Simulated assay, not measured.
Amino acid sequence: MAKVHVCNVLVYDNPSAFLKPFQFEITFECIEDLKEDLEWKIIYVGSAESEQYDQVLDTILVGPVPEGRHMFVFTADPPNPSRIPMQDLVGVTVVLLTCSYKEKEFIRVGYYVNVDYADAELKENPPATPVYEKLVRNILATNPRVTRFKIDWDDQEAVNQENVPPTTSAASLNAHEDPFGPLKNPVATSKSEESSMEVI
């Protein structure tokens, strides 16, 4: 049984300028005290074609974590646009929020992200060289894809993670389906001016 359950994720400041930081408010619950830290990551998928363009925007350690419900805001710098293939900069991509315990990933929340120009003229006639300052990103926060992995929380014999090794590419949003196909576990709601999803 999982010892950590992600209860809710709020996406702040969405939509926003492409060069602004990402902000996720994460609420999670521990069913018992954890001896080790939880490792959270925000990963931006630069291209659906190759993982080499994935960027880990930030990694934080949270712990030690006592039993109970906890909440924090995870803020990360935007991706470096110069490391994204020019043909993949504008359009639909993915941002991943992952959590691991003892270097074993047990949950991944993936969001589609639409990147485009806010200016109608630039939309119609995009410049040959992207103007980063004019780009806007919109995280489709009401349609997350949640993937859970079984891990061994107690350092006993390794548990089979549904025979699917975690990866960080766009395809990893759902290891068994087309990454841009129907969502798996689309348990989401919208709240006030902030976008949110609830994970049960």
Rank of each mutant, 00 (worst) to 15 (best):
M71T: 14
P66C: 07
Y53V: 06
L135N: 06
W153L: 04
T189E: 13
T98K: 02
E177V: 11
L140N: 07
Y117S: 01
E133R: 13
K20N: 11
I200V: 10
V115C: 03
P85F: 07
V62R: 09
V131Q: 12
S47N: 04
M86T: 15
N143L: 10
V109K: 01
V73R: 04
L34C: 06
E25Q: 14
L34T: 01
A120L: 12
V146L: 05
A17P: 11
V73Q: 07
G46Q: 02
N14G: 00
P130Y: 00
E124M: 13
E121G: 02
S190W: 15
S195K: 09
G181K: 04
I200T: 10
K184C: 10
I84C: 06
S196G: 11
Y12F: 08
D33L: 04
E39W: 02
A141F: 09
V45Y: 00
N138E: 10
N174Y: 09
Y101I: 04
L57N: 00
S50C: 15
D13G: 10
A188W: 03
I26P: 01
E32C: 09
T189H: 14
P166G: 06
C7P: 01
Q23S: 13
Y132R: 05
L97G: 05
E36I: 02
V90N: 12
G181A: 05
E124S: 13
S172W: 03
P66Y: 06
E67Y: 06
S16E: 11
P182G: 04
L183Y: 12
S169H: 08
F18A: 01
I200P: 10
F28M: 04
Q161R: 15
Y111H: 07
T142I: 14
R137K: 14
Q55C: 01
T142D: 12
V45I: 06
P127M: 05
L10D: 05
Q161Y: 13
T147H: 09
P165K: 07
D13H: 15
S196Y: 06
E198Y: 11
A120G: 04
P81Y: 02
V9K: 01
N14T: 05
V90R: 15
N160F: 14
T129C: 07
E25R: 13
F72L: 08
F106W: 06
Y132H: 05
F72D: 08
V92K: 14
D58C: 09
Y132L: 04
C7Y: 09
A2D: 15
L97N: 02
I26F: 03
E49P: 09
V45N: 00
F72H: 05
L183H: 08
E162T: 13
M1W: 12
I31K: 14
I60A: 03
A120Y: 12
P144V: 03
Q87N: 14
V56F: 05
